[in-house]
Design a protein around this nucleic acid. Structure first.
Lengths: 200, 200
DNA sequence: TCAATTAACATACGTGGCGTATGCGAATAA
DNA sequence: TTATTCGCATACGCCACGTATGTTAATTGA
């Protein structure tokens, strides 16, 4: 049985650490996740972790970068399927709410991430989600669908609204009902961005 | 020099612990704040802390309850000064953004609080801010100023938007400009809630 | 009024988690 | 071949948290 090439082994180690940490962070939370525990479950030790990621925060950054990329992919796929840019914008935000309902994303991206690394807007090379959302808004401005507002500020506002809605729904006694209410209220609110009355 | 009555001594101990923790949490963050350190600075030990608050989380809850009450007071004062309910609603949200720019509130209420205690909407007897915001929205619905949306969902959405805006502004290279952009975009967005075109 | 109990803390102890320093084998470079 | 770097494991010390155990003063109750 031939051994794998060295480069592959290293990449595999990194991947195993990220996967183990991702699972531990999602289920127990960042603070409660013991590095000894989840490195052990990956068949490694903290030595490998410190070598590759520097410290616990560094590993969290790597986990966040991975999840962020996945979220961005999913959002892009959704908005690209829409017939109009506006519908794509709306779909993207509804999808964001649904993603934020997934425990892993809520825990890591919305709760622990900001607390440990600071606000997402200061994360250097990730938050592809925000960039994608900003691009969508800019597109709507350029094609004249919505009013001439600042794209980045609007993207942040809308994103914060959906995020907050998701947290609310997740904790609600009746998530189904909360989801419907939130979606409806969201559509009404963002209709203020439109130049003319909402077409749909 | 007569000693103070017993009840007062106890209340004083609690107040000293909360004040010391509040300062430590705000400046160093919840995770980095050592209980030995800030109880010592208050002239006490961890024994007093565990007796009164159970554990570190319990103390954080007390700190959050205090700050939440202060924020609620400030917001109520602002909205009550406004000429119309809509103007009060807008003022309240602008004020919320400004409050969220204060490092103490950002750190404790917006970053560490949710990470440690879970989302604010699940906090039992606090988040008076949210209740006050919900009441404002309900009032606007009742008087026919805004469309018939769910008050709580709308309050959450709007609050999340302002929160996100504040975090963005705080981390922006040019906070002044960011603040102006965010405020303008906010006004445009929430105008979607109005039944008729924005009066101001 | 005088035990007995409880409240309000302080002290002491054990444990676990983190970071760093060190070691070691394998791969690469010289 | 030797030297050096790389990839990881092992070993150590420290600090912080939680708990168990005092200790003193106030309160109860008979």
């Amino acid at each position: 049985m031939a051994h794998k090439p060295r480069k592959e082994m290293i990449a595999e180690t990194r991947a195993k650490l990220i996967a183990a940490a991702r699972h531990a962070f999602a289920t127990q939370g960042y603070a409660e996740a013991s590095m000894d525990d989840f490195t052990g479950q990956a068949g490694l030790t903290r030595g490998a972790l410190y070598h590759h990621f520097g410290d616990k925060k560094g590993l969290l950054q790597a986990v966040i970068a991975e999840i962020d990329a996945e979220m961005s992919d999913r959002l892009c796929a959704i908005s690209s399927r829409a017939k109009t840019a506006w519908q794509g914008f709306v779909d993207e935000n509804i999808a964001y709410i649904e993603m934020a309902l997934e425990p892993e994303i809520r825990r890591i991206m919305l709760l622990d991430g900001p607390a440990v690394l600071g606000d997402p807007s200061n994360w250097p090379n990730q938050n592809a989600c925000l960039r994608s959302m900003t691009a969508s808004v800019q597109k709507l401005i350029d094609e004249g669908t919505i009013r001439h507002v600042d794209a980045e500020a609007t993207a942040r506002l809308v994103n914060g609204a959906t995020l907050s809605a998701a947290l609310w729904i997740a904790g609600a006694e009746d998530p189904e009902a909360a989801s419907r209410k939130a979606t409806e209220a969201f559509l009404v609110m963002v209709s203020g961005l439109l130049k003319e009355t909402v077409p749909a």
